[in-house]
């Protein structure tokens, strides 16, 4: 019993620490207008908590990569300030950047270098003395050890992606940015990489990832930020977000098919499906049953009572919650 409770307790402790500790990345009033006049970011404020996995979601051109690029030093901000572990990314760029690792979206690498040489180069470039033991640990954790003497040009796409992660981890960063980390990676490898990312989070590294794969955010993130048209639309705990915005669907498999919805049940806005064999009811997931008063704002208790009164019986039922993808689409559409 005790061991069953340990994991959730540890998670709760870690969550509490994250909330109390000062943010590891702090973005204040950040704007970016490119020379072409395109405004990629509009007065962004964002705080990333220490040790969390933060997923930044948004459609193409929303400003995800620009935001990451500014924090990592690839793009100049037009306005605003960013602190990484308390250091200003412009004034104290050496301190700030030495704490940050970046895995870019594109598979960019020196084709004729070996895995070992390119990862060792990255460590040196970030001002760290050689540490073959650390490089070995990183390569082994990413299943690249056997390929250490291979030239990058001979590696598969998934392996090249892992090399980029190894390069970003070579200087032991506290903050890791993963820009579309599993783009073009097969399902099996994607799951392996999720495990690697979780392992990094457990070792104390804060992870900020952008992704098109909602499944990825749903699977891994502690908190979700949604960016659209250069603005942060919302930032929320993943579980809270799904609870708040996720609509639920109750499907009743009827004993006898219905031709139409009876008058008495019109108020519930029910849908008939599967030739009248299924009755579908949509309700708000955040409206839970109040156990003390017995009030059920979701309307399920009342619906079941009314169905019974109308002589409609069912042989089975199931509920389904909206995926993060559905929530994301509805959020972005809502803004447009």
């Amino acid at each position: 019993m005790t061991s069953n409770l340990e994991a959730p307790l540890r998670r709760a402790e870690r969550d509490a620490e994250r909330v109390v500790a000062p943010p590891i990345v702090s973005v204040e009033n950040l704007s970016k207008t490119y020379a072409s006049g395109f405004q990629a970011l509009k007065h962004i404020d964002l705080e990333i908590r220490r040790g969390e996995i933060f997923a930044l979601l948004g459609p193409n051109g929303a400003g995800k990569t620009t935001l990451i690029s500014i924090i990592c030093g690839l793009v100049n901000a037009s306005e605003g300030r960013v602190l990484a572990d308390g250091f200003d990314i412009e004034r104290d760029y050496r301190e700030a950047r030495s704490r940050i690792g970046l895995v870019p979206q594109e598979l960019t690498n020196e084709a004729f270098e070996t895995v070992w040489a390119t990862v060792s180069f990255s460590r040196g470039l970030f001002g760290k003395p050689p540490n073959p033991e650390h490089i070995e640990r990183v390569l082994k954790s990413l299943a690249l050890w056997d390929k250490r003497n291979n030239k990058l040009i001979t590696l598969s796409g998934g392996m090249k992606r892992r090399v980029l992660i190894a390069k970003a981890l070579s200087h032991e960063p506290r903050i890791l940015f993963l820009d579309e980390p599993t783009a073009g990676v097969d399902v099996e490898l994607r799951r392996e990489m999720w495990e690697v990312v979780r392992g990094l989070r457990d070792s104390g590294v804060t992870i900020i990832l952008t992704t098109h794969y909602i499944e990825e955010a749903e699977e891994m993130a502690d908190r979700i930020g949604v960016i659209n048209n250069g603005e942060i639309v919302l930032v929320e705990e993943k579980r809270e977000l799904m609870r708040k915005l996720g609509s639920k669907q109750l499907t009743l498999h009827l004993l006898h098919p219905l031709g139409e919805i009876p008058e008495a049940l019109i108020a519930y806005h029910l849908e008939l499906a599967a030739d009248g064999k299924e009755l579908i009811y949509h309700y708000d997931a955040s409206l839970a049953l109040d156990c003390e008063s017995g009030d059920d704002a979701s309307g399920i208790t009342a619906l079941l009572g009314d169905l019974d009164a109308a002589g409609i019986h069912f042989k089975d039922l199931h509920t389904k919650q909206s995926s993060l993808e559905e929530i994301f689409v509805s959020l972005v559409r809502g803004r447009q």
């Binding site: 990592c72 030093g73 690839l74 760029y93 050496r94 301190e95 700030a96 950047r97 030495s98 940050i100 970046l102 870019p104 594109e106 960019t108 690498n109 020196e110 990255s122 470039l125 970030f126 001002g127 390069k167």
Partner: peptide, 10 residues
């Protein structure tokens, strides 16, 4: 594209 690493280094 590997210049990203140079620009993001301290």
């Amino acid at each position: 594209g590997t210049i990203y690493e140079l620009l993001s280094a301290p």
